[in-house]
Design a protein around this nucleic acid. Sequence first.
RNA 1: GCGAAAGUGGCGGAAUUGGCAGACGCACCAGACUUAGAAUCUGGCGGGUAAAACCGUGGGGGUUCGAGUCCCCCCUUUCGCACCA
Length: 892
Amino acid sequence: MAESKTKPPETRAAGRRAKPPAPLYADRYDPQAIEQKWSERWAQNPELYRASTPADAKVASAGGPGAALKKYYVLEMLPYPSGALHMGHVRNYAIGDALARYMWMQGYNVLHPMGWDSFGLPAENAAIQNRTPPKQWTLHNIASMKRQMKRLGFAYDWSKEVTTCLPEYYRWNQWFFLKLFERGLAYRRKSKVNWCPKCATVLANEQVLPSGCCWRHEDTLVEQRELEQWFLRITDYADELLQGLDKLQGWPEKVRTMQRNWIGRSEGTLVDFRLDGVAGPAGDRIPVFTTRVDTIYGATSLQLAPEHPTVTDLIANNPELLAKVEDLMAEQRRAKEAGDIGEIEKHGVFTERYAINPFNGERVPIWVANYVLMDYGTGAIMSVPAHDERDYEFAKKYGLDIRVVIYPRREGDASSGEPNEPVLPFVETNSLVINSGEFSGLPSEDVIARMSKYAEEHGFGKATVTFRLKDWGISRQRYWGTPIPIIYCAACGIVPVPEKDLPVLLPENVEITLAGDGVPGAPVVGTTGWGGSPLGKVPEFVNVSCPKCGGRAHRETDTMDTFVDSSWYFYRYTDPTLSDRPLDPDTVGYWFPIDQYIGGVEHAILHLIYSRFWTKVMRDMGLVHNAEPAERLFTQGMVIKGGAKMSKSLGNVVSPDDMIARYGADATRMYTLFGGPPDRDLDWQDDGIKGISGFLSRVYRFVARNANQGRAAGSAGSTGLSPAARRVQRKLHQTIRRVTEDFGGRWHFNTSIAAVMELVNELYAYEDSVQRGEPSAPPSLLADAQHRLVLMLAPFAPYLAHELWETLGETSDLLRAPWPQYDAALAKEEEVEYAIQVNGKIRSRIVVPADAGEQEVRELALADEKVKAAIAGKEIIKVLVVKGRLVNVAVK
RNA sequence: GCGAAAGUGGCGGAAUUGGCAGACGCACCAGACUUAGAAUCUGGCGGGUAAAACCGUGGGGGUUCGAGUCCCCCCUUUCGCACCA
């Protein structure tokens, strides 16, 4: 029991002594004292939240040999150690912690780990600003955030902690990279990359906002640069990543849709159009991707993206055209930046060159158009104005030929007969092909297959599938990341670092400054922002001898995208101390897949698609058996305030530390669950948390003055109870049912907590009834109610629950105490109130025994005075009785 | 433009399959206890009325004995995708 720190209670007690009744209320709820007490106890017992190993779980199982204790892996997305937790973290972890504690109480062997996604840009930026080494800054942040998590009472198994910026972890990033390289899944190529001038580094496609700006610098436009980059062949898994989504029934539909869009699978045909006349370095043919090859006889031009390599070949000696194409390019870029590509007016330039349609040998003019995108398909399209809205608009504008080759099918006529003249552009596929040589008269769908086959047989095309998904560029020109374990040798070329030489350690004696920002005399051995990799400025890192020939060589100086770290961290949790392997397949086999993953929807694409990819690669390597990392995914809503995202600039940031100091950790985390359903945004109300604090206080006071009721004797019967006592009993069992159902189903903890509040209100009403002279309940009932109340509180407010568990005289470990069961018979109402409607309007209410028959209810309803008055003089058409709810009398 | 989710008191939100709209909490009002305040307890609290009637779930239609819930049309907000060939 928390001791009171202040004097006033004494004076209050003294003041009250004078008059009866005796002081009703015990000491005030003091969350700080309670939480400090239990924090200390928990700190002394690090085994408390430790997951049993698979072997131990077997032993612990009561089910005999072979029957392992059932496992449950609950995982929350690990934070970036920015320095302090924000409310969004608190909400995320409060959900996970409630679930983990509930599953423990349900008897599961729970794995509930936490770690740090600790590589990344902010550490470097902080290093530049504060002249602190990134590692020091990061580890310092980790320490303080870990302290916050412990203060919040989250039940993590810290023996499983993973810190991605430490060599013990990132060496396995390097190991995986080597394995991917061996399997041909990691490769290097020169590529245009997104370059943020402020970050001075390459950004992944996913890190470029739709506006064309950097995700970290929303006001800075991303440029294009050509660099040698390492890529991971995620596109090899595009189909499986897509198909797997159908099986992920435990994932939100929203996330699956987003991933489907991101993968962007599209079936079509690749057709080569031969250039008529000149051919340049880019080749003599232009491949075109189309999903509607059945319309190819209607192609009246080719349209190239402004950045298409062939464009310069075609118009190299025409400065006027070149300038126009430049304009188109600029226009397209501008539209992308503004985010309204899709709405810009279509513009184009005729190159004065032609290509040959391989199907009919026709010469078609080649244009460059601003609505054709280089980064989709082949960057070139055939333009069929009659059967594509965009092409139609373009052709109308520039007076290009429009040739109809698809006709609608007539009603009830599948293959022949007189076609109807279509309204242009006519884009339906359920139609007939005409004016198309040997393909005329056939249905479109058939023609697509036939034409693809024809193209392949004649060597100018084939059926193909394109994806929007691109290979994953992982090279970053940054210091604070995992060094890519590759050595470049003048004689041997690209040489992977031998496995025995791992890890390639990230040098730590590096001071990070911006180029030209060096303090004279300071030991600046690394710089950033000079356009190359900071590690390139560390000679002792760069210069090595070639592992193959022993000659002089140099290391790769780029580091890996931090999404590599987060793609497999949850496997490492199962045994993070392994020093000879990234993971133990048996241990992983026991724990995986993750039963419940919880995090923000902002990771719907990047992290969640990369980690699915990684899992599939690991499966192909024989490391794991599961094809997907997580069985169920829950995306919680954001914590907002006043309808807006919390931000420093809006000044609406609510700090968890402040709330903990004012109301305690229990109230803070519980409010994040009470404020609204967890899948929706939570609008933070400064006064809302007061309600939770007051509720916890009510619980505390009730138990403080009613704890000495003896031991709970389990459910007693309901006979002989006073009405108020019976209400307590009924509400108790109803509440257990509601809370249990919420955990098992909707996860609407806001209503679970509301239900527990109702129970507490009922307990207070009972006390009040005793004050008024009604008979007391048997002590066992009160003891039982308090025990179960505390058990139900445990997942939401662990500090108070533990304190009260002790107050109730319990010495067992609350974390592993069995979750309470309810008795349906005791939860049942003896009487129900029926609403009596006349023509749908409520006219009266009657209370009848719950088991009253329909006929009885009908008679009682019709005998009711108010009902009689309402139906007087009218004819009863129908009397409808809805069991347990209402009676509706229809009259005329 | 396409797709998804949402729109309920002063506020956050309840109402699981069509069946008493507004649970629970905040704010507010009143009372009790206090020298007083804080805290606590009790009661009230959609609009409207003296009380009823009556009106109320973004707007308009519909189905039904009965609609926040189902159907059609429209409006607004948020999110995702967006010349994807």
